[in-house]
Design a protein around this nucleic acid. Sequence first.
DNA 1: CCTAACTTACTTAGTACTCGGTAAGTGAGT
DNA 2: ACTCACTTACCGAGTACTAAGTAAGTTAGG
Lengths: 211, 211
Amino acid sequence: MSRADQPLHGDEPVTSRRERARLRREEIIGIASELFAERGYRGTSLADVAGRAGITEPGLLHHFGNKAGLLLAVIERRDLDSEAFAMELLGMEPAERLRALPEFARRNRERAGLAKLFTVLVAESLEPDAPGHDHFVARYRALRAIVADTIRSAREAGLTRAGLDPEVKAAEIIATLDGLQTQWLLDPEAVDIVAAVESYARTLERDLTGS
Amino acid sequence: MSRADQPLHGDEPVTSRRERARLRREEIIGIASELFAERGYRGTSLADVAGRAGITEPGLLHHFGNKAGLLLAVIERRDLDSEAFAMELLGMEPAERLRALPEFARRNRERAGLAKLFTVLVAESLEPDAPGHDHFVARYRALRAIVADTIRSAREAGLTRAGLDPEVKAAEIIATLDGLQTQWLLDPEAVDIVAAVESYARTLERDLTGS
DNA sequence: CCTAACTTACTTAGTACTCGGTAAGTGAGT
DNA sequence: ACTCACTTACCGAGTACTAAGTAAGTTAGG
């Protein structure tokens, strides 16, 4: 049919076997993320994931080793996503970062699945021997450190009031955003997440500057 | 052995069969609460609960009908507990309620299981068709209404600054307390829940009064 | 340049086990 | 006599995971 040197079969774009497998893996991770968000890690079976991905259970295990391996892959990809946002934030002026929060909320609203995935997986990881526990502990510590650093640098620039503990305030800020997200996920009709975060950003600005 | 009319066997107090069954039911609910907190509703099997309660699975189902019935019983009892606290709060002067928050945190710290149970069950109830969904939606709406009312009455008494939306602020307050609790449950060594709530209570007082 | 050796990405079939739930009793207490 | 709190004995469906094989693709040696 084709006189090209590359082995073109059908309409498929030219991709190496390795590349195709990588894409397949990514696709499976996406499917697993959706299912984990809806039913939790424990509530999702390998058969559920495999079925929706159009693969067999052993085919799935070939890629991820075991069920916990699949969870780890899901968590890792979610992290890449939120890391991108963190870098975006860190690229701004500290004062500007506050104003980025509503935009963050707006973005999250369009991807409720990702937010739900995170909330569900954290709750399933509270026990010390849960498969994702150590990961989420490390993530929250890192997140608190980033926010605390932001507060510290703003303080050194003379932008904040005296008498606030950056670590405690960091935990408080993250807690509020997480908690609002949970209430919104549970009852989207009753909670306007964007309005709530906008209001909180203003509250936080008053709190930090002591105005 | 004994010439008493009442059938005393061993050290057991005299209780009717009905009363004994009720106590047994309560005991089972306590056991199920612990297991649900540790492993979630989905992660806990009837066999787990029955085994720890020293009963068979059908024996368990005799009391609760099915697994969702057991969950409902667990949720109901948790509600009785937190309702008692809500009444306690409502008995105080609005201004006093803020000062009760750290005491609330201190109490919760001693009963981490109850806090964990709540966090886990909420996350498992995010999906609209989850067994506990409607219950938690109603609970959060009621809780927001109570807090919003408190803010409104404080405002009418001229105790708060202008320009705050009671509903939005209520969601924010509940979110912060929930979020702090989650961080503490995940990593008790890194997060001092009592100190964090004490700090937040002060922040909140400044925010509400506009001082 | 071709082919044989090897690797990768799966599949079919089945393992041992757990799941929530039911039918039919049993035996003690009222 | 009857009820109630159970137990024994199941069931069909689902659980994560494994063993063994296959077709296709990749790579090294002649």
